[in-house]
Computed example of a mutant assay.
Amino acid sequence: MSVSEEQAPVEVTLRGEVGDSARRYAQEKVEHALSVARPRVLRAHVVLDHRHDPAVPRPARAEATVDVEGTTLRAHATAPTMGEAVDELEARLRRRLVQLQDRTRTRHRWTGVASEHEWRHGDQPREPVPYYPRPEESREVVRHKSFAAEPMTIDEAAFDMDLLDHDFYLFTDVGSGEPALVHRLPEGGYGVKGAASEEAVAAVTHEPSPPQLTDAEARIRLEADSEPFVFYLDAGTGHGRVLYRRYDGHYGLITQE
């Protein structure tokens, strides 16, 4: 199957100090990764961002968003050079495509390698995202995403988090009906916040009760702690919310409807 005949072309957006040679290299590497995709890729968009900053050891960032017949996959990587970031991006994207095919073939939401509850081990640890050192007084919530959280198991939430290459995933625990969050641990494996099931207790780390906070209180907590996000319940509605740090130094907010 040729990419030109069957797959959508790879769109590449350049930001910062990135040249056309990096564009061509990213197109070639991502097209190669997508050649294993079944079913067909409907859209593939890559963003390459490099901003010279001596204080940031991994200034090159590459991220990809791929639509595989209605299923969204994402992957991102940071590295000292753009070539290294694109190489890591290709490897991470290829792994997600294989996982999607495994799920489609077996009709199971989390297939992992072989064992049950593979989410306890999770993806390979990766380098943390270097946050732009934006002054606290200039930080804003620049992205707000609200969604109806579908009830699911922790296995399902962990699998979807992995496909999207996120560091956390907000969902409704199918056992308790309450807001819950699965998240990556720096040393590898997954932790769980909010779910009360036996499955959650078996996680590497488990925190059963998120705090009730206002958005302002969550921001104070995020700015005071070294954690990349704060999971909390809206003080008025009880719905789950996550305030998180973006790599550009601003904040993002995810809320349940």
Score class of each variant (00 low, 15 high):
S2Y: 09
P9E: 12
E11K: 10
R15M: 08
G16E: 02
G19I: 06
D20S: 13
Y25M: 09
Q27I: 07
K29S: 09
V30L: 04
V30T: 03
E31Q: 14
L34D: 00
V36S: 12
P39V: 06
P39N: 07
V41F: 01
L42M: 11
A44E: 01
H45T: 10
P54Q: 05
V56I: 15
R58K: 14
R58C: 10
P59D: 02
A60F: 03
A60C: 07
A62M: 03
T65V: 12
D67G: 06
V68G: 00
E69T: 14
A75R: 00
A85F: 00
A85N: 00
A85V: 04
V86R: 00
L100R: 02
D102V: 09
T104N: 12
H108P: 01
E118I: 06
R120P: 01
D123A: 14
Q124C: 07
P125A: 04
Y132W: 15
P133F: 04
P135R: 10
E136V: 14
E137G: 04
R139I: 08
V141D: 09
V142Q: 11
S146M: 13
S146E: 15
A148Y: 11
A148L: 14
M152F: 07
D155E: 14
E156C: 13
A158T: 05
D160S: 11
D162G: 14
D162K: 08
L163M: 11
L164M: 15
D173I: 04
V174Q: 11
S176N: 07
A180H: 00
V182T: 01
H183Q: 07
R184D: 05
L185W: 02
P186W: 04
G188S: 10
G191H: 07
A195K: 00
S197D: 12
S197V: 05
E199W: 08
E199A: 15
P211I: 06
D215P: 06
A218Y: 01
A224H: 14
F231H: 03
L233G: 02
L233N: 01
D234A: 05
G238T: 07
R241K: 14
Y244W: 10
R246L: 11
Y247M: 05
D248I: 08
G249H: 06
G249S: 11
H250S: 06
Y251C: 03
Y251A: 03
L253Q: 04
I254F: 10
I254K: 12
Q256H: 07
E257Q: 09
